[in-house]
Design a protein around this nucleic acid. Structure first.
Length: 759
DNA sequence: ATAGGGTTAG
């Protein structure tokens, strides 16, 4: 066609009919459009609005917004049709903002919109989730009478469904004189998406009564709606009903039902659907393949998942993403990373989902530094993070207290305007709390416009971890005044905060009224909190009888809580009871053996210490290596206990010797009880020098400005010697030092620690 | 010329 069109433009015979013919051809390329435009200008044909209008839609289809917008302004007397052409073009291309912009020009020209243009305008409001403007248009349609049009009405139904105003949608629907299949389907899928199973079925029944035949889109909309709202079983059942009603599911149906099958983890159904896909020959549909891979991944069938991937006819980024997250979901992090790297090697175009999946995989499986690095690489490669990427990344920052990285992500959130997301907000709260900046966490919390229960729990959990029980209780009361109901996580924060701050009575009160006053039945973790609460207060017998009388079989957390309390209060008898239970429940957890031996060592019972050490040895178990992280000048340093490989190790040990000497001079001798071995005192000191948190603190002292705050993260509980050492350092060096261990924050200042030496 | 359904990341 292009040859013919160009021949027309090359002639100097400017018969309007010839050009008109060429402009009526389905599409012209952009250069051809420009050529036609030039010719129209030269020949003066622009006075006929038909040509200009045609040019408008051509420019719009080539995404030449400024050209199209200029052109329409050049028309002396534009009519509704000129504007409509452009609006239709924009709305079809999902350029909703542009569409609405043109519509407002139509209005400002005092032109009267017709029933044909309104649906595209409402569709644009729908696409932008702009309920306000949509409602205005609705109002206009009511007063002008355009509302009687079926297309206008069904676009309004869609607007309200999309903007979560299902009641409005139903009202518009009820006012329709003759509901059509489109409006019915939209309303049905809207109810399904709102988890309103009964209403969806009611409207479905009503459309049948009215003689409106449901079609494939109706059924698919229901399946998709139930899937999206988490009614997975319902989605699968509707899929069945659809087949029983004589419909042949297509690619859309299958792609909608498979995620639901995956969630219900019923691989037999999944295999059936897979078989159907093969039979119908829709296995080359990209969405179908991705959904199959996803389903097998969710059903823990990594083999089948890989097989579907390997057999797919054409590589597709969606399928690759499903594969990566499938591996990650099953804990196969190396496979996930390999698949991701293969993707890059094959120069497959990675999208934001690919990057977000792999970042999530790393931050959820202890590969925090890798996650941060991938986030950097993502931006280098030109893919923009979005409101999902950030909550996947932030836990990695929090895990290793990479505050600067977290702040950079926060800056990104503010610049890109995604801070309204509750996911982003609660992830920021968690990150700041985990980085020891509880006040910044609070600022994020206070600035949120909408908060869900996760946000409330995040800030309360943050304060609890910092041992600020009063703040937790204050937030809890604020929450009571809001419309959010506390859940079991809320009470875990409350109880652990009370135990960390020694508010024993208040903690017991919360425990006693959580079921009665708030309808939250205590779970086993709440009993564990109660044991810690009583244990910390020295009420070890009460703690023990709590365990004996609780309505659950006590688990490792509960016995672990008792054992820790026994360490604080040097109770050998109960420690042995708890430890023996723990050795039964988790024989391969070295932490329990270490804790018991520390309790023995603290009382000088070296024979017992040896016995525990031999137990560990005979089981081939080693103490988990202690590991600490500290962020210095935007770089995260990792230090392992006893590891001398750090480039600054000579300086670190020198500084540590100096500090130890100062401590001795001032009579603050190191406590040498927290070592596993019974060795000569001097050697003990040497082993203590190697504890990772100590190394990290000293590294921080050497590389940061005087008196600045230090922040260290440790993978195990802080040991007593290091605790004493750091208290001393905080006084001698006039430093605030935050250390987060597996349990809580220790805030060292002026020679004291916020935990009050109970932990 | 106008209105409805799908996959993969939290």
């Amino acid at each position: 066609m292009s040859k013919q069109a160009l021949r027309v433009f090359d002639t100097h015979h400017h018969h309007s009919t010839t050009i008109l013919t060429s402009l009526n051809l389905p599409t012209l390329s952009l250069p051809q459009t420009r050529q036609a435009h030039a010719q129209i200008l030269r020949t003066g044909l622009f006075i006929h609005s038909h040509f200009t209008t045609k040019l408008l839609s051509l420019y719009a289809n080539h995404l030449q917004f400024s050209q199209a917008n200029t052109l329409i302004k050049s028309i002396q007397h534009p009519d509704v049709f000129s504007f409509s052409t452009l609006i239709h073009a924009y709305s079809k291309l999902n350029q909703f903002t542009q569409a609405i912009l043109i519509f407002s020009q139509l209005v400002s020209h005092k032109l009267f919109p017709d029933t044909r243009v309104i649906p595209s305008v409402i569709k644009s409001c729908t696409g932008l989730n702009n309920l306000r403007y949509g409602k205005q248009i609705h109002g206009f349609c009511v007063t002008s009478g355009l509302c009687k049009d079926q297309f206008v009405q069904s676009s309004l139904v869609h607007l309200y469904v999309k903007c979560s105003r299902i009641n409005y949608a139903h009202k518009v629907f009820d006012e329709m004189s003759q509901p059509d299949v489109v409006s019915c389907s939209t309303l049905v899928s809207g109810y399904a998406r709102d988890r309103c199973v009964n209403e969806a079925k009611l409207v479905f029944g009503r459309m049948v009564e009215l003689g409106v035949e449901p079609n494939l889109v109706t059924w698919n909309g229901m399946v998709a709606g139930f899937n999206q709202s988490g009614c997975h079983l319902e989605a699968v059942m509707v899929f069945r009903d659809m087949i029983l009603s004589g419909f042949e599911p297509d690619g859309t149906s299958v792609s909608s039902v498979l995620p639901a099958v995956g969630e219900s983890e019923d691989v037999r159904v999944g295999v059936q659907v897979h078989g159907y896909v093969c039979k119908r020959g829709i296995g080359s549909d990209k969405c179908v393949v991705s959904a199959l891979i996803d389903m097998y991944g969710k059903c823990s069938c990594a083999m089948e998942m890989s097989q579907v991937f390997d057999e797919m006819p054409q590589r597709d980024v969606g399928a690759c993403n499903a594969l990566v997250s499938g591996f990650a979901r099953n804990g196969l992090t190396d496979d996930a990373l390999n698949a991701f790297n293969r993707l890059r090697d094959q120069e497959m175009e990675l999208n934001v989902v690919s990057w977000t999946s792999i970042i999530a995989c790393c931050s959820q499986h202890g590969k925090d530094i890798e996650a941060l690095d991938l986030f950097r690489q993502m931006q280098v490669s030109g893919v923009k993070p979005n409101a999902v990427t950030i909550p996947c990344l932030l836990p990695a920052c929090g895990n290793i207290a990479a505050l600067m990285h977290g702040k950079a992500a926060h800056g990104f959130v503010l610049r890109t305007g995604i801070s309204d997301s509750v996911y982003v907000g609660s992830a920021l709260i968690d990150m700041y709390a985990n980085c020891g900046r509880i006040h910044l966490a609070r600022v994020c919390f206070d600035r949120m416009l909408v908060r869900n229960i996760v946000c409330w729990n995040a800030i309360m959990g943050g304060y609890a971890m910092h041992g600020n029980a009063n703040e937790v209780i204050e937030i809890f009361h604020l929450m009571e005044k809001s419309d959010k109901k506390p859940d079991f996580i809320t009470f875990t924060s409350l109880l652990s905060a009370c135990s960390h701050s020694g508010l024993t009575e208040q903690g017991e009160q919360f425990f006693n009224k959580m079921a009665k006053d708030y309808g939250v039945k205590p779970r086993i973790e709440h009993y564990a909190c109660l044991v810690t609460l009583l244990g910390r207060a020295g009420k070890l017998n009460e703690a023990f009888s709590t365990i004996e009388n609780m309505p659950f079989e006590p688990d490792a957390c509960v016995w672990g809580a008792l054992l820790s309390s026994c360490r604080v209060h040097n109770n050998i008898k109960l420690a042995e009871v708890a430890a023996n239970k723990l050795f039964e429940l988790e024989p391969n957890n070295p932490g329990n053996y270490v804790l018991l031996s520390n309790i023995y060592a603290n009382k000088g019972l070296w024979k017992e210490v040896d016995r525990v050490r031999d137990m560990m040895k005979s089981m081939g178990m080693k103490k988990n290596p202690g590991c600490s992280w500290i962020e210095i000048k935007n770089k995260v340093h990792m230090l392992l206990a006893g590891d001398v490989s750090h480039p600054q190790m000579v300086k670190i040990l020198e500084k540590m010797d100096n500090l130890t000497m100062e401590m001795k001079k001032l009579g603050c001798l190191p406590v040498t009880s927290f070592v596993l071995q019974d060795v000569e005192d001097q050697e003990k000191e040497h082993i203590l020098c190697g504890h990772s948190e100590k190394l990290a603190v000293v590294l921080g002292l050497l590389n940061t400005p005087q008196r600045s705050t230090l922040q260290v993260i440790k993978n195990l509980r802080i040991c007593g010697d290091c605790h004493d050492f750091i208290k001393f350092v905080s006084k001698l060096e006039q430093r605030e030092i935050f250390i987060r261990d597996t349990n809580r924050f220790h805030h060292f200042k002026y020679g004291l620690c916020s935990c009050g030496d109970y932990w």
